[in-house]
Design a protein around this nucleic acid. Structure first.
Length: 525
RNA sequence: GAUCCCGUAGCUCAGCUGGCAGAGCAUCUGACUUUUAAUCAGAGGGUCGCAGGUUCGAGCCCUGCCGGGAUCACCA
């Protein structure tokens, strides 16, 4: 940024920075010894022990050394208060002219220190006349000067004034959003807890966390359009993975009996409240198990995460109270549809299904097969009504090219989704391990592809080769971490659980579609 | 991709029927040694998203574009 574009306030702060440096002070020093965080002081402070009193012997001071950001500043002549924020929270600090080195208060604290600056303070805790535990500052040092002014929000009795509401600002400058909004930081702390709780649940059971390729010569494991890229040295097209599934199952072939991965997948599709092009997925594969066993595991895992996060199995999500207490309901998809619509779709042919959909007010076009119509009816009529966590089981085979045929129900596969608050929470099946059946199913996908379905899966010959070496019976699970986090932290948009959600580039960004410094012109179709 | 809404000072917003660009907070100057949306007195700060059009005159009306939001469509 050229200095001409700087705002009045930024220019003034740059001048202050020079004034600070001209005093021989480094405005960006190297470290600060931290003895307490704000919440430590609030917890440790004991009036009967630490509160200083007027007589000489009164009180044993609670001495502290802290670091954080100046968030408010109230100057009252020869004394001032400011609020000070660190990673743990906020605490008030008090400075008195006569407790600081000669001239420091008037020339440095009052003139050169701004809201937003990061400071180190040393002093002792006390309780003010109005009852707030505060730090009486005896030494103050600038740790980092803020050039840009922080938006100032003010709050009293739970009411917030001048709250930054511009979502674009909050997402683009998430660092500012995090400085200003404890509740935003809290969501991401909870997200981290969800993931670490999940990881420790899986680790305790002996499953191995692995890393499989993000850059893949062929994508698969889900129905979605991929991002495409190019490796220059090999001069080959690569795709960013849309799922981990096929690589993880190769590891089951290789002899691991339980593997999981928590990682980003990438799907080249639209953005919405529930969709970000890169998102985090947990996938788990366990040998010698089936989908019924996996339902038990999902219940147990999610319930344990919820309890670890909230201390109980019941949580408030929007208007709803949701109970993750086990067991969850298990309903075959056809029964769920029947109980919601009164229509039994089991065994109907495509035309009868289309007629049923039509009578429910659901549009059907010629390209939709039986499975798609059933899925459409379920998604429209049933899914939004499933608030409490529920396993929907036994899906039509057409929608599930990687799931094993149902052991007793023709035309279905051993698959389930957990639905909660009207949204899918996970997807799992008894994995298809018959290489002959797998080849046929992928060939069906190829026909869909030829018919114009650009989300149908391509055939991965190496994956079939792996299956031909023998994959044990296996249960597999995929769980969207972002949506799980939305549910467990009561957030309405996926952008509120992703630190840096995808946005269009800012106008100033150097975007140039023509630019390709390494010359990618050999990649012709 | 469709529809609707939004874009004005660092932040939150007002701006009437088209007629001098406004407020609070923040900032600056001054006062104030336990305040807490601190208070009191004064001051500075604007590419009204961008481009074009209509008009004597546009923040306001029209067109296009850019950015954002919501809903729908798409999305296992």
């Amino acid at each position: 940024m050229s200095e001409a574009q700087r705002s009045e306030q930024e220019l003034r702060r740059l001048e202050e920075l020079e004034a600070i440096e001209s005093r021989g002070v480094n405005a960006y020093p190297y470290a600060w010894e931290v003895s307490h965080h704000s919440t430590d002081v609030l917890a440790e402070f004991d009036d009967s022990v630490h509160q200083p009193s007027d007589d000489e012997d009164g009180g044993t001071p609670l001495r502290v050394s802290m670091a954080g950001r100046v968030m408010t500043k109230r100057v009252m002549g020869k004394a001032s208060f400011f609020h000070f924020q660190d990673a743990a929270g906020r605490i008030q600090a008090y400075v008195k002219r006569d407790d600081l080195p000669e001239g420091f208060y008037n020339e440095v604290f009052k003139k050169l220190l701004d809201i937003g600056d990061i400071v180190g303070i040393e002093g002792f805790a006390f309780r003010t006349r109005t009852g707030e535990i505060s730090i009486h500052v005896e030494r103050l040092e600038l740790l980092a000067k803020a050039i840009r002014p922080l938006p100032i929000e003010k709050e009293t009795e739970g009411r917030v004034f001048n709250e930054v509401s511009d979502k674009e600002f909050r997402y683009r400058q998430r660092y500012v959003d995090l400085i200003l909004h404890d509740r935003v930081r809290e969501v991401f702390v909870q997200r981290a807890r969800i993931i670490s709780s999940m990881r420790s649940f899986l680790d305790k059971r002996g499953y191995i966390e692995v890393e499989t390729p993000v850059l893949q010569p062929l994508y698969g494991g889900a129905s979605a359009r991929p991002f495409t890229t190019h490796h220059n040295a090999l001069d080959s097209t690569l795709y960013l993975r849309i799922a981990d599934e096929l690589y993880l199952k190769r590891l089951i072939v290789g002899g691991f009996e339980g593997v999981y991965e928590i990682a980003k997948d990438f799907r080249n599709e639209g953005l919405s409240r529930f969709h970000n092009p890169e998102f985090t997925m947990m996938e788990l594969y366990v040998a010698y198990k089936d989908y019924r066993w996996m339902m038990d595991l999902v219940e147990e895992m999610v319930a344990s995460i919820v309890v670890e996060l909230h201390g109980q199995t019941d949580i408030q999500v929007g208007e709803q109270t949701i109970s993750f207490a086990r067991p969850w309901k298990r309903i075959p998809i056809f029964d769920a549809i029947e109980s919601e619509t009164g229509k039994q779709l089991r065994g109907l042919d495509r035309d009868a299904l289309a007629a049923a959909a039509d009578s429910l007010g659901i549009e059907v076009d010629g390209s939709m097969g039986s499975g798609k119509i059933i899925d459409e009816i379920f998604g429209e009529c049933v899914e939004p009504k499933l608030i409490q966590p529920t396993f929907i089981t036994d899906y039509p085979i057409e929608l599930s090219p990687l799931a094993k045929k149902h052991r007793s129900e023709a035309g279905l596969v051993e698959r389930f989704e957990a639905i909660c608050n009207g949204k899918e929470l996970c997807n799992a099946f008894s994995e298809l391990n018959d290489p002959r059946d797998q080849r046929r199913r992928l060939e069906d996908q190829t026909r869909l592809r030829a018919g114009g379905d650009d989300e149908a899966m391509p055939i991965d010959e190496d994956y079939i080769r792996a299956l031909e070496y023998g994959m044990p019976p296996t249960a597999g699970l995929g769980m969207g971490i972002d949506r799980l986090t939305m549910l467990l932290t009561n957030q309405q948009s996926i952008r509120d659980v992703i630190l840096f959600p995808l946005l269009k580039p800012e106008a100033d960004d150097p975007v140039d579609d023509e630019a390709d410094p390494v010359g990618d012109t050999t990649a012709e179709d």
